[in-house]
């Protein structure tokens, strides 16, 4: 009877732990990280905000940010939406060049820039390289899940080890 009760408590405990972990990851990915360290930039300081995001992403990927290939700012005339996107040119340790897509959106609700879909371009998990048979179904799933997990891990890494070391 006691062993059964113990098992039951353990199952409930693990379920609670899993729920809290999932909640923390959701909070981190959807609320905390998009805004992290972008609080100080106004709508007009989009270039500074994008550069901070690009430097952080490059550092977390083990690259060094060099410059923007291009950076575009767009806003609507009716309403408050504003967007900035561009391509950051980064240098890899082996001397090669990597291009990173940087995309921020202005949040009226939070009054600041928020990080959006940002990633390294033309990495092996890009579907642009796939053919009908290569990679196979299992490898496709593995690459797709790995792409998402890599972005999450990279964001966590960026917060734990920021580029300027602060």
């Amino acid at each position: 009877m006691t062993a059964r009760r113990l098992l039951r408590r353990a199952v409930i405990g693990i379920a609670c732990l899993a729920a809290v972990t999932a909640g923390l990851l959701l909070w981190f990915g959807a609320w905390y990280f998009p805004a992290w360290r972008l609080e100080g930039f106004s709508k007009a300081q989009y270039r500074e905000a994008a550069e901070l995001a690009a430097r952080g992403l490059a550092h977390a990927e083990g690259l060094s940010f060099e410059d923007f290939d291009f950076l575009k700012y767009r806003e609507v005339t009716r309403g408050s939406e504003a967007y900035v996107w561009g391509v950051a040119k980064c240098r890899a340790a082996d001397g090669g060049t990597e291009l990173a897509w940087i995309y921020l959106e202005w949040s009226t609700k939070r009054g600041q820039w928020l990080r959006n879909y940002s990633l390294l371009l033309a990495t092996p998990d890009d579907e642009i390289y796939y053919t009908r048979t290569h990679p196979g179904q299992v490898d496709r799933a593995r690459l797709a899940i790995g792409k998402l997990l890599h972005q999450l891990a990279r964001n966590i890494h960026e917060v734990r080890d920021p580029p300027d070391g602060r």
Binding site: W85, W101, L121, D126
Partner: peptide
């Protein structure tokens, strides 16, 4: 704006490739 961004993303991917 969204369609322009999608076009730019495709062009950036082409450039990276």
């Amino acid at each position: 704006i969204m369609k322009e961004r999608h076009l730019d993303f495709g062009d950036a991917t082409a450039k990276a490739v």
